[in-house]
Design a protein around this nucleic acid. Structure first.
Lengths: 218, 218
DNA sequence: CGTAGTCTTGAGTATCCTCAACGAGGGTGG
DNA sequence: CCACCCTCGTTGAGGATACTCAAGACTACG
C-alpha cells in the first residue's frame, strides 16, 4: 500500500504567512495514508519535516515486554519527524481514514532557512510547541486516578482540536489508543468514561463524540 | 537570600567551540544557588536562556490538589528557561548545595544569533535535547510496575550524568523528589529500591549512590 | 444480515497509596 | 562532648485502585 501523492492541501500556519513560509511551501508535497498505515518506521532517519493536514496519527513504539506506548497524538497543524537523531526511535502511523500529511525535505528546509532568517525562528517555535505538548503529557500521566487522566486527556484534545465549540470533542482514535497513550488498560479507559458519565462530568453524544461539562474533577 | 554572581564557570558544550558560542559566552553570567532556592518562579516570563554548570535543579509545579509534580530534573549541561510562553508555568529550584547556573539574556542571544547563523542551529539542537528528555520521560512514566519505573529512572540518570563509570549513579535528589518525578509515593520508591536490591538488580553503595547491575528488569 | 472489530461490564487478583511507626544521620545548643 | 531535634529513609498493615481474564453488547462494513 503506497501513500497517494499530490501537491495541494497546504497546512495554513496561523499568523505565519511570511515570504519564507511560502518559499518553504513550494518544496512541500502531500501524501495520503490509510488507517493504521505507517507514515514512517522507527528505523528510518528523519529526512523531512512532516505536518498533519487532515486526520490524525500516533507516534509510538513497542517496548521490550510487548506493550505499545503512544508518546504523542498528532493532529492537524502538528509537526513531527524532526529531531529524531536521538536515542529513542518512534514510528508514526495514521489513526483515521484518510490522513493527509505534508512533507518538507530536510535539506530543502535548511536551504530555504539560509536565505530566510525568520523561518528558523518559526522552526524553533514549532519545536517549542512539541516540547510544550510533551510537558503537558507528563502532567497528565502524573495524575492520580484513571478518571482524572481520561478527563485531562479529553480536555487536552478539545484544546488542540481547534473546534468551534470547545466543550465538544470528537476523538479520532480508538479506546485502545487512548489506553496506550495514558498508560492504562483499555478496560480502565472504558470504566473511567462510564464513571465520568455517571458523575455528569461528560456526556456521550456518539461513541467517539463527547461533551465535556466539568473540565475539573470535583 | 540572593544568588551569588560571578562571570566565570562557563559550561563547556561538547563539540561546540564555535565563534558564535564564544560570542554568546561574553554576554553570559553565572549565579550560585543554595538548596531549595528558587532559580525562577512560575509566573516570571522567561527572559533568558539558562544552563546548569554544577549541581542540579528540579522543574516543577504544584497541582490543584496540592500535589507537587516534577516535570524534569536539570543536570549540568542542560538548558532551560526557554520556550516558556506556553500554557503551563513551572518553577525551577536548586536541588543541591551549591548549584551554579549560567544565564544568557534572551535579547542578547537573539542579537548574537543574527550575526552568527550557526548559533540558531545550536539553539535548535538544545531544544531537541529537551524534547528528547521529555519523550524519554513519558516512556518511563508509562512503565507498569514501580520497580520498573525506578530502575528506568536510575538508568536515565546514569546516562545523563556523564560519569566515567556508567554503572554507578550518584543521585543529587531526595526520595521525595524521585517520587514526584515518577508520580508514585516516596514509600513506593523506597520499597522499589529494596526490591531491586533484593533481586540483585542494583547495589546501594551509599544512601544516594547506587550501582546498577542489571539495566533491564528480568 | 452476518462477521469482525470495538466497546462495555463483571469478578478476582495484584499493585500501589495512605497512615503510622521506627531508625539513621546531621546540625545545634546546652 | 553529648543530648536533642529535625529531616530523610525504610518498613509494616489495611484499604483503595487498576490490571487480567472473560463474557457479552454494540458498531461498522462488506
Amino acid at each position: 500500500m503506497r501513500p497517494v501523492c499530490s501537491t495541494h492541501a497546504v497546512p495554513e500556519r496561523h499568523g505565519c504567512t511570511s515570504h519564507a513560509w511560502l518559499a518553504l511551501e513550494s518544496v512541500g508535497s502531500t501524501r495520503t495514508y490509510a488507517i493504521n498505515q505507517e507514515i514512517y518506521g522507527k528505523d528510518e532517519r528523519a529526512q523531512e519535516w512532516l505536518c498533519i493536514v487532515t486526520g490524525a496519527a500516533r507516534k509510538c513504539l513497542v517496548l521490550d515486554d510487548g506493550r505499545r506506548r503512544i508518546v504523542d497524538f498528532l493532529l492537524p497543524h502538528d509537526f513531527f519527524g524532526f529531531g529524531t537523531r536521538n536515542a529513542h526511535h518512534f514510528s508514526v502511523e495514521a489513526v483515521v481514514q484518510p490522513t493527509l500529511v505534508r512533507s518538507y525535505p530536510r535539506d530543502h528546509v535548511e536551504q530555504v532557512a539560509e536565505s530566510h532568517l525568520d523561518l528558523q525562528q518559526t522552526m524553533q517555535e514549532i519545536t517549542f510547541e512539541a516540547l510544550s505538548r510533551a510537558h503537558a503529557r507528563v502532567l497528565i500521566l502524573g495524575r492520580v486516578t484513571a478518571a482524572q487522566k481520561v478527563l485531562a486527556f479529553l480536555v487536552e484534545m478539545s484544546v488542540r482540536s481547534f473546534s468551534v465549540d470547545r466543550s465538544i470533542v470528537t476523538l479520532p482514535m480508538a479506546r485502545d489508543d487512548i489506553a496506550d497513550y495514558l498508560a492504562i488498560s483499555a478496560e480502565t479507559v472504558s470504566r473511567a468514561l462510564s464513571e465520568l458519565k455517571r458523575t455528569r462530568a461528560i456526556t456521550l453524544i456518539g461513541i467517539r463524540q463527547i461533551k465535556i461539562a466539568d473540565r475539573h474533577l470535583h
